[in-house]
Amino acid sequence: MKHPYKTREGGATVTIFVPYDCKNHCPFCINKEEYADMTGFSVEKICDSIRRMDAITPRCDFVFTGGEPFADLESLQVMLDEIPTTHKIYINTTLPVSEYQSEEDILTFLEKNKEKITCVNVSRHMQHYVVESNDDLLARLPVPFRVNCVLYKNYPVKDLVPYLERFHKIPGASIQFRFDYTATTPENLYEEEHDKILHDLKEVARYTGLDGCRMRCGFHFDYKGMELTYHKTLPYSTIVETDPKDGVTYDILYDILIKQNGDIHSDWTGVLMDVDAYEKVVFEPYDLKWLERIA
């Protein structure tokens, strides 16, 4: 650690990489190579780190990702049980269904944990990178859900409206379109004029506003009453900034990672966190705010 830590009120989001793999090969995924050698991966060590983070920031958000969180429901349950109800919990998933795991298995699991799970973020891309469960399963989920879609490189623009119509008919659906975060820079984070995705969405949906912070932003739309967001975020999660009030330079953390072996990182770039120093973290108001709203 070069500088003392600062983060938003409540604490930085803690993303947990489950210690088991998925069967997908999405071209924009930078996590896949981490699962090539699973030596040292441990549910127990992850649980130790969950307890440590809960003790420091008892109201931070937790996100399960991978890998595929729902690929091992028993292990996921063990990790979920370690998180008190003071936290919001999000799960990134493809909702995998196979000969070994049925739709009913997933629904039973979610029903059991519906008081703890804030939202399930379901990957459904315009280009088929993964084996998808039936869309009808989304309508049966006993927890809130959001559809996540990475618009990767030369995505098929002609399929945009059919894609929106596909989910518009499912009660409770909203969609978050995502820019390829590996290509996001401070220079293009808020850039609009040359953003092809933004222009494509404005052609088919009503633009309603923009929110954002130092690290990420969201362009908001309405499509026939269904909420759409176009999300852009930087590929790292630490901002180095000097506070003009006290003259101290801080590492401002937006995301903390619990890796598959239980190690705690302070950034997506592989930086190990000084957990003892984080116990003395300075809090600031969250800088995410609406920058533009259109009625």
Rank of each mutant, 00 (worst) to 15 (best):
K2D: 15
P4E: 10
Y5Q: 08
G11R: 04
A12L: 09
A12K: 03
T13K: 10
T15P: 00
F17A: 08
V18K: 01
Y20D: 05
Y20H: 12
C26R: 02
P27K: 04
P27F: 05
F28A: 02
I30H: 14
K32T: 14
A36T: 11
A36C: 06
D37H: 10
D37A: 06
T39L: 07
F41E: 02
V43E: 03
V43N: 09
K45F: 04
I46D: 06
I46P: 14
C47E: 14
C47S: 15
M53I: 10
D54N: 13
A55T: 08
A55G: 14
T57M: 12
D61V: 10
F62R: 00
F62M: 03
F64I: 07
T65Q: 07
E68Q: 04
F70H: 02
D72G: 00
L73E: 02
E74A: 13
S75H: 12
L76I: 12
T85G: 00
H87M: 05
H87N: 06
H87P: 14
K88I: 02
N92G: 10
T93R: 12
T94E: 13
P96S: 01
Q101C: 03
F109N: 10
F109W: 14
T118Q: 11
V120F: 03
Q127P: 00
Q127E: 15
Y129K: 05
V130K: 13
E132V: 02
D135K: 07
R140L: 05
P144N: 14
F145H: 02
N148Y: 07
C149R: 05
V150N: 03
N154R: 09
K158S: 15
K158Q: 13
Y163K: 09
Y163V: 06
F167T: 06
K169T: 15
G172W: 03
A173F: 05
S174E: 14
I175W: 01
I175M: 00
Q176R: 15
R178W: 01
F179R: 05
Y181K: 10
E187F: 09
E187M: 13
D195A: 04
L198G: 07
H199T: 12
D200Q: 03
K202G: 03
E203N: 11
Y207V: 00
Y207S: 05
T208K: 08
G209S: 02
L210T: 10
G212V: 01
C213D: 15
R214L: 09
M215D: 08
F221L: 03
D222L: 01
Y223D: 08
E227Y: 11
T233F: 01
T238N: 08
I239T: 15
V240M: 08
D243N: 15
P244H: 09
G247V: 11
G247W: 07
Y250D: 08
Y250V: 06
D251L: 11
D251V: 09
I252T: 07
D255L: 12
I256C: 08
I256R: 15
L257A: 12
I258G: 01
I258N: 02
K259W: 11
N261W: 04
D263Y: 00
H265A: 08
W268C: 00
T269H: 05
T269C: 10
G270C: 04
K280R: 15
E284K: 12
P285W: 05
L288E: 12
L288S: 12
K289P: 01
K289Y: 02
W290V: 15
W290S: 11
